[in-house]
Computed example of a mutant assay.
Amino acid sequence: MRTAIHPRLYDPAPDDPVLNGGECARCGRVYFPPIGLGCENCGAPAESLTSVALATDGVVFAIAEVNVNAQGTSPFSVVEVVLDAGPLIRAAVHPASPPLQIDDRVRARWHAVKRSDAGADLVEPAFIKSTFIFGESE
């Protein structure tokens, strides 16, 4: 069983991560995370924003190595990804991914960060190179 670390941002039930985004009905701007104050692009009111499911396929825009963090875990990488749906997002690189470079095609896979007291995997989407999905070429 999977439990989302950030339940407002994604549903942990599907096999592949899908993000909870938003879209402006007036101008078509797509957001992640979803916003509720109105469209920052065209100024449409909040009721013009609708919920949309966003696939996690995209292209690496930037990469950073994180060497120190509050949890004391070993170094990890963070990427900025321009999703095919439009928004630029930040997320961790999946530990099973080969090293990523700018302009690599990626998609998210579930990464179990830890276990809950009830035994559920606490998950978040993490990006992996699209041509290397857990050791298999696509």
Rank of each mutant, 00 (worst) to 15 (best):
C42R: 12
A108L: 13
A70P: 10
E40V: 10
R115A: 07
G119D: 05
L54F: 08
Q101K: 13
V59W: 13
S77I: 01
E80S: 13
D84S: 02
D104W: 00
R90C: 13
A62P: 11
L100K: 00
V60Y: 01
N69V: 07
D84Q: 03
T56H: 12
G72A: 00
D117K: 10
V93Y: 07
L83H: 03
A64M: 14
L83F: 05
S51N: 09
A92Q: 11
L83M: 12
P95A: 03
S74Y: 09
N41P: 06
T50D: 06
L83C: 04
V60C: 03
P95W: 10
V113M: 08
V78D: 13
P87S: 02
F61G: 06
E47G: 01
D84P: 02
C42V: 03
N69R: 11
A118C: 07
G43F: 09
V52T: 11
A92P: 02
E80K: 04
P98H: 13
A118K: 10
V60W: 08
C42L: 04
G43V: 01
F76E: 07
F61T: 07
A53Q: 15
F76M: 09
G119P: 00
P95Q: 09
C39L: 04
I63R: 07
V106S: 07
T73A: 15
D103C: 04
V93M: 03
S51C: 00
P95T: 00
Q101W: 06
I63T: 15
D84C: 01
A55S: 14
G72K: 02
S116G: 13
P87T: 00
P99S: 01
S48N: 01
A64C: 13
A91L: 06
E80F: 11
A112D: 14
E47V: 07
S116W: 01
C42M: 05
T73L: 04
V82M: 12
V60H: 03
I102K: 05
A118Y: 01
D117G: 05
R90I: 14
F61R: 10
V81T: 06
H94C: 12
S77K: 07
W110I: 12
S51E: 15
A92K: 14
A92W: 04
C42S: 07
A46K: 13
T56G: 03
E47N: 06
T73K: 09
G72H: 08
R105G: 05
L83K: 10
A118L: 08
R90P: 10
A44C: 03
H94F: 05
V82C: 14
F61S: 12
P95L: 12
K114D: 07
E65H: 09
V81M: 00
T56D: 13
A108P: 07
Q71T: 15
F61L: 08
A112Y: 05
V93C: 08
L49G: 07
V93E: 05
L49C: 02
D103Y: 05
V93H: 04
V106D: 03
A112E: 09
K114C: 10
N67E: 09
G72I: 00
V59M: 10
I63N: 03
P45M: 02
E40A: 14
W110Y: 11
R115F: 08
N41M: 13
H111P: 02
L54K: 00
G119R: 02
